[in-house]
Amino acid sequence: MALPNLLLIALFTYRPLLSNIYYSTLDWTLGSVDATVVGWGNYVEFFHSGDAGSVLGTTAVFTVATVGGAMVLGLLVAVALNQQIPGRTLARSAVFAPYVLSGVGVGMVWLFIFDPVYGVLSWVLRGVGLASPQWINDPALALVMVILVFVWKNLGYCAIVYLAGLQSLPHDVMEAATLDGAGPLRRFYFVVLPLLSPTTFFLLITSTLSSLQAFDIIKIMTPTGNGTGTLIFEAYLQAFGAYNRAGYSAAISVVLFVLLLIMTGLQLRFVERKVHYA
């Protein structure tokens, strides 16, 4: 019964993966019928190039900021939405809605908001006598811009998952902590957070994988990668930008795959030790 699914996975997941690893050993221009085998040449060129440090650093900053921001804010929002307040169902829907929206549409809307000349944000800043930062032209601000938008889009996902975790907490444990004199902050830190560790562990893995593969928002808001050149976006630029270097792009993709594999393995090896499942 599992054989058809296994065949589909082998055909559409593992076969492209192995093909990409093979392409990474070629000096191949996209569209060309000829290619030269260079072995590890593309990997050596990438790690010895001046762009490797910048790309890996940008990827690290983007991943840490988006994962940490979405999880921390998502937990705070989940705690607020878990209260018995009027309109909480509508609030939950509003918080989760950005996550299901198209990344292209989200990027275009926020690009208009951040526009230093015609954007809504610049209009608000001019209203209080301040000049709008050059979000798009300044590489450092461009990275901050896409981080803010990515966190905003994925905040609802973390909030809903945390909310499900909060609603599944055992009431007897919470009542016992209250009877023992633990205040709201102590209950949250010493009881709620440890009980939410499986949820946090799940979100840490899924959010990290999602951030390392983020593409659509970065492509729409910074088409040339001005300060936002993560690994996956650099692979795109090398293959489909001005270079058409498909083999070199495949090597960068393999580096990203190995990084994803290492990150997931480290999380399973070390982070899971601190997870309380019972």
Score class of each variant (00 low, 15 high):
residue 129 G to P: 11
residue 132 S to I: 11
residue 132 S to P: 10
residue 133 P to S: 12
residue 135 W to N: 04
residue 136 I to N: 11
residue 136 I to Y: 07
residue 138 D to K: 10
residue 140 A to K: 14
residue 141 L to H: 11
residue 141 L to Y: 10
residue 141 L to C: 10
residue 142 A to R: 03
residue 143 L to A: 04
residue 147 I to N: 01
residue 149 V to P: 01
residue 149 V to R: 02
residue 150 F to H: 09
residue 150 F to W: 05
residue 151 V to A: 03
residue 152 W to C: 02
residue 153 K to Q: 08
residue 159 A to R: 03
residue 159 A to M: 08
residue 160 I to Y: 05
residue 163 L to A: 07
residue 164 A to W: 12
residue 164 A to G: 15
residue 166 L to D: 05
residue 168 S to E: 13
residue 169 L to R: 01
residue 170 P to I: 08
residue 171 H to C: 02
residue 174 M to N: 03
residue 175 E to C: 08
residue 176 A to R: 07
residue 178 T to G: 10
residue 178 T to Y: 09
residue 179 L to W: 07
residue 179 L to F: 09
residue 180 D to G: 06
residue 181 G to S: 09
residue 181 G to E: 07
residue 182 A to R: 01
residue 184 P to T: 04
residue 185 L to R: 10
residue 188 F to M: 06
residue 188 F to H: 00
residue 192 V to G: 02
residue 193 L to I: 15
residue 194 P to N: 13
residue 195 L to D: 02
residue 196 L to F: 06
residue 197 S to K: 09
residue 198 P to Q: 11
residue 199 T to Q: 09
residue 200 T to F: 05
residue 200 T to I: 10
residue 200 T to S: 14
residue 201 F to K: 08
residue 203 L to W: 01
residue 203 L to R: 02
residue 205 I to L: 14
residue 206 T to V: 15
residue 207 S to H: 04
residue 209 L to W: 00
residue 210 S to C: 05
residue 212 L to W: 00
residue 216 D to A: 04
residue 218 I to L: 14
residue 219 K to F: 14
residue 220 I to N: 01
residue 220 I to R: 00
residue 223 P to N: 12
residue 228 T to W: 03
residue 228 T to R: 02
residue 229 G to N: 15
residue 229 G to T: 13
residue 235 A to K: 03
residue 238 Q to L: 12
residue 239 A to E: 03
residue 241 G to D: 05
residue 241 G to K: 04
residue 241 G to P: 02
residue 243 Y to C: 04
residue 245 R to H: 06
residue 245 R to C: 00
residue 246 A to Y: 02
residue 247 G to M: 01
residue 248 Y to R: 00
residue 248 Y to W: 05
residue 252 I to A: 00
residue 252 I to E: 03
residue 255 V to K: 01
residue 255 V to L: 08
residue 256 L to F: 03
residue 258 V to W: 06
residue 259 L to A: 08
residue 259 L to K: 00
residue 260 L to G: 08
residue 260 L to K: 02
residue 262 I to K: 07
residue 263 M to R: 01
residue 264 T to K: 07
residue 265 G to A: 13
residue 265 G to R: 12
residue 267 Q to T: 14
residue 269 R to Q: 15
residue 269 R to C: 12
residue 270 F to V: 15
residue 271 V to C: 10
residue 272 E to S: 15
residue 272 E to T: 12
residue 273 R to I: 12
residue 273 R to S: 10
residue 274 K to W: 15
residue 275 V to T: 13
residue 276 H to W: 10
residue 276 H to L: 12
